[in-house]
Amino acid sequence: MLKSMTGYGRTKGTVKGYQVDVEIRTLNSKFLDVQLKVPRLFQSKELEIRSLLSEGLTRGKLAVTIDMVQDAEADSSNQVNHELFKKYYKEFEALAKEVNANQSDLFRLALHSPDVMNGSALDEEELEEQWKGVKKLLAEAIVSCNNFRQQEGASLAAELANYIDSIGSFLEQVKALDPERAEAIRERILKHQKEIESSDEFDKNRFEQEMIYYIEKLDISEELVRLSNHLSYFKEVMGESDSQGKKLGFISQEIGREINTIGSKANYAPIQKLVVGMKDELEKIKEQLLNII
Rank of each mutant, 00 (worst) to 15 (best):
L111E: 02
T58D: 15
F202V: 03
A161G: 07
A158N: 05
N81L: 15
Q35C: 01
V276G: 00
A154V: 10
F31A: 02
D71H: 13
Q288R: 05
K247L: 02
A96K: 06
G263H: 12
N229V: 08
I189K: 02
R40A: 07
K86R: 12
G133N: 02
I212T: 06
G249D: 13
R257C: 03
N146Q: 11
G56N: 12
Q244E: 11
K194H: 09
E210S: 03
E91P: 02
Y163T: 14
I215M: 06
N267Y: 05
G239Y: 10
D33C: 08
I293L: 11
H82E: 10
Q35T: 12
I220W: 06
R50Q: 10
K217L: 01
L160W: 00
G263W: 11
D178F: 00
P39Q: 03
Q244S: 12
E159Y: 12
K86T: 09
I167A: 01
A182M: 14
Y214L: 00
K90Y: 13
R10K: 08
N118G: 02
K235F: 00
F107I: 09
G277C: 02
Q173C: 12
E48I: 02
P39T: 05
R40P: 07
M238R: 12
T6Y: 06
Y89I: 03
Y213W: 04
F207N: 00
S4M: 07
K194T: 13
R50V: 05
H230M: 07
A158R: 00
K246P: 11
T26I: 10
N229P: 04
K136T: 07
D67C: 12
I255V: 08
C145K: 00
S51G: 10
D75Q: 07
E187C: 09
E236Q: 14
F250D: 01
A154E: 10
E98K: 05
R108I: 06
I259L: 01
A74C: 10
G249Y: 15
A110H: 03
S120D: 14
L95K: 02
L177C: 10
N118W: 01
D242F: 13
V34T: 07
I251Q: 13
E23N: 09
K135T: 07
V276L: 06
T6S: 08
N229S: 11
E125I: 07
N102F: 07
M1H: 06
E281Q: 06
S198Q: 11
E187F: 15
G17V: 01
I220K: 00
H112Q: 05
G7P: 08
K132R: 14
S77P: 09
K90E: 10
L274N: 12
E287T: 08
